[in-house]
């Protein structure tokens, strides 16, 4: 009887722990979605490419424990002395959080295609986003904030 009671108490504890954690987690999820175009401040240069505008699409779910899932896509339009050049950043999001000021920061690993014929490279990336724009960090380089021109970014 004592063993039965111990097993019952243990099972009850595990079941309640699982249910409680699930409820607590579900209550704190933040979704970040965005689509549109944005502009760089004049004089923005990345790896020798002068950037003017961008296009973005993202869908990310942030969990209260700092984990996150989702996708980030950012096409950076610019030019060099030889002509127009388009840089493509395609990222899988694995972590992120809601900041005190209402912005979100998320990141993971991305494929960076410089659009110059070289092979895409894999790098860590992070994005800090508000409803007005996004700041992209590729590897150790922080690009100036891209300000939304068309479309929007929603943090819910």
């Amino acid at each position: 009887m004592k063993r039965l009671t111990t097993a019952f108490v243990l099972a009850l504890f595990i079941a309640t722990t699982a249910a409680a954690s699930r409820v607590l987690i579900a209550a704190g999820e933040t979704s970040v979605t965005g689509a549109g175009t944005a502009g760089f401040p004049s004089g923005t240069v990345f790896n020798g490419v002068t950037l003017t505008s961008s296009q973005f699409g993202k869908g990310v779910v942030l969990n209260p424990d700092g984990s996150a899932t989702g996708d980030f896509y950012n096409v950076l339009d610019g030019s060099t002395a030889v002509g127009p050049q388009t840089i493509t950043v395609t990222g899988l999001v694995s972590s992120g959080s809601l900041n005190a000021n209402g912005s979100v920061t998320f990141g993971g690993n991305c494929s960076l295609d410089m659009g110059d014929g070289t092979r895409p490279s894999s790098l860590p990336f992070s994005v800090t986003a508000t409803s007005q724009g996004l700041t992209l960090v590729i590897g150790t380089t922080t690009l100036p904030t891209q300000t939304v021109i068309a479309g929007g970014i929603d943090i819910r």
Binding site: T17, S21, P64
Partner: peptide
Amino acid sequence: VVPLLAVVFVLPFAGRVAA
């Protein structure tokens, strides 16, 4: 008591438990 204890214990690390 057990469910109450379970909730109290899980609160600080709910994310890890859920994961």
